[in-house]
Design a protein around this nucleic acid. Sequence first.
DNA 1: GATCCGACATGGA
DNA 2: TCCATGTCGGATC
Length: 914
Amino acid sequence: MNAVEIEEAISALAEQPFDPDEFPYAFLEAFGRKSTEIKRLRSGHSNKSDLDGVLQRNHIHIKTCALGTVKETLDALRDSAATAKGKAKFILATDGQTLEAEDLSSDVPPIVCDYPEFPDHFGFFLPLAGISTVKQIRESAFDIKATGRLNRLYVELLKDNPEWGTSERRHDMNHFMARLIFCFFAEDTDIFSKADLFTSTIETMSAPDSSNTHEVIGELFKAMNTKPEDRAGAGRARWASVFPYVNGGLFSGSTDVPRFSRISRSYLLHIGNLDWKKINPDIFGSMIQAVADDEERGALGMHYTSVPNILKVLNPLFLDDLREKLEEAGDNTRKLLNLRNRMARIRVFDPACGSGNFLVIAYKEMRAIEAELNQRRGEGDRRSEIPLTNFRGIELRDFPAEIARLALIIAEYQCDVRHRGQKEALAEFLPLDAKNWITCGNALRLDWLSICPPTGTGVKMHSEDLFSTPLDQAEIDFENEGGETYVCGNPPFKGARKQSAEQKSDLAFIFQGGNDYKDCDYVAGWYLKGAAFLTVTKGALAFVSTSSVCEGEQVQHIWSRVFDSGSKIIFAHRPFAWRNNASNIAMVTCVIVGLGADTARVLGVFDDETLKHCHSVSPYLIPGEPIFVTAQKAPVSANLNQIVSGSMPRDGGNLLLGNTEKQELEAKAPGASKFLRRYSGTSELTNGTIRWCLWIEDGDLGAAKAIPEVAERIRAVEAFRLQSKAKTTNGYARIPHKFAQRSHKNGNAIIVSATSSQNREYLPADWINDQVIVSNAAYVVYGGELSQFACLVSRLHLAWVATVCGRMKTDYRYSKTLGWNTFPIPPLTEKNKADLNRCAEDILLAREAHFPATIADLYDPAKMPADLRAAHDRNDEVLERIYIGRRFRNDTERLEKLFDLYIRMTTGKGKKAG
DNA sequence: GATCCGACATGGA
DNA sequence: TCCATGTCGGATC
């Protein structure tokens, strides 16, 4: 069940007469507990309550009680031994009049409410349904409720008016929904002259059989699109005359209304009776997207960007600066006036605005600054100078674009009420004068300059150089020329392998030449286009994006272009986990990157909210020069051998065997032993698990196939490869007895894991012998010397790999071309090599001394044995002395030196921008 | 619920 | 044909 469904179920339960015996089960059912679980609870089988209530282990302890004893009951539940033993997260007591509940697992304040109101707190219990969500969504019961109700209406209307669901009319449908939402909001906030005016007018004027509902609503919409003085002439119905003139793009155009059935009419009235004052424009947009989108509804608020995350973009981009200027101005009226004039000219542009989250927050924050400013100037009720039309957006999907516009209008009204007072807010709210300033279209194809033209030039720019097709739409003039433009947003992330053909072609269009776009995330398009935009606009830019744009492969493709176009990184947030909704949504790791023209001031790098000031930010989001490494085919350091990735089976698991599987096979077919080899990936290397693989040379194929069990496995590999959708894999079906990619060589070798936990201080690496087949989960240096092992397990190398290689989530991902081949080592003397060899031996000896501890045990930072740590310290000391004659102070210094050396060793291969 | 890391599609050379 | 990388979700404690 999703949040909307739960909200509906809970609301339905609260409307039923209270049944003390049934309530606990009905409550659990409403939160999506399975009927089998509930059956077992009813039978007492799994009910662990010691208070004659209902206790579902790990979830909740519920007890219904006699009138007036709720508090005592809750106390008893809290003190109950069973509550503790059953690890109940929640306790809940109710007598049918009041309801009290506590979340024992967190410090969320407890609930005390009248019984009929408890559905308003359903977010409190969402963890019962396995939905862990951010606070803002949990606390937005109203927005979830409204979304659910609107969706029901939407679906019902489309059922009765199928043509409204077609692509030609979908826009009308969405526009109609936006109008409805506006009217519901207006009638609950005194924007309409009487409370519930809209809903009650429909209720009284339309027939209960719903036959003329669409006409009544259409008449109201027409009235709101006609100036009062023109209404008589236009033949507007008299009963609609109490409605104000609204227009502002919202009511212009077609006033067609879909036809209503009895059911949809009753849904409509029901929705109208909700209290729309509670709507929260910060987030209602991202919720309400779910109304028109099945996928969104499954994961309510999946595009919700939390306010703190939005502020991570907006504060360093420009809001902090405005606040500083406000501080500096103190009570100096002249300075305050200058600041106000500056703010009135600022444009905020979100070229991936969704339902307008960033624009709404930017607007509200600026209004708060302006309000403080006006207070200091003694003009507390002054009309705002910040024009809504300076907040521009582009959004691909129609419904969110409609909602973005509406959310801004509502935000403006709410800001007026907050900062100036209800009376002033009302006096100037209507008619809406803003036209359509959220553009619906593909941001990577539209001309940003015509949507958000550069200011102060007096010249309308349309630049085909800026990767744009001209916009075929009337331009909306900005108010107040000559200001700064701040571009912000959270553009869609789509990995290179996840993009549709259109998205691929969007990127190809923006990258203009080269095919490195094929390896880039979709969000890269926004950075490139944004950087081009900055060349002609005064201002700055910052986007939230997937961390991979600043890791590994993509760095060279994206940032070389951004730097070449004359932008630099002015601030950045280091990778952070993006939690927005249900736990079933994959956790994404994000960064925020802020760009400015080459002349812009640089702020620094945020790591977990802490700002580290610096004069230059590297595309790897550390303080440092704008240098990036490019993939190298061979090691740039003379002392390193080639490294290869391990052998890749692509076998559907059929060539691989666990230890017991191997023993079973050998018991049945002793002849199979000669085809079995130890198989080592990362897990085998670090955790000491044992696996085996079938390794059959072409000449042995006949002998291998003579063993039925082996022949069967070979057939399974063939079948697996044939049914793969990758052409290359299909090709390997011809050699089903072999790994798809084979890099095995005989002889001793160094093995290093391809992925490693971020928590380790050294990369897991080891010596292996030639009996072992290394899997593609690891890399191997065949014939490498111990001194190379010493480099591999050094702190210096880890610092390099952590910075320039890709990542798996936040863990390290080793790379041949970016990690090993680029690692710069100064020329080594024979003595250097001998010293490093000794260090490597010492490390291996120290490990051996702790046999049978695994690498995972030995390298757990909390448990690392002192002798092993000392051996590593000596290794680091010896290696670092080769670089600078002493140990480095920290990783910052290590990276500075490494980048410097890298550039010197790759002249012409790595570029330095600027 | 945090931590770790496997398996392969994909596309470049 | 050969080979390197990102992905992100799944296994495992």
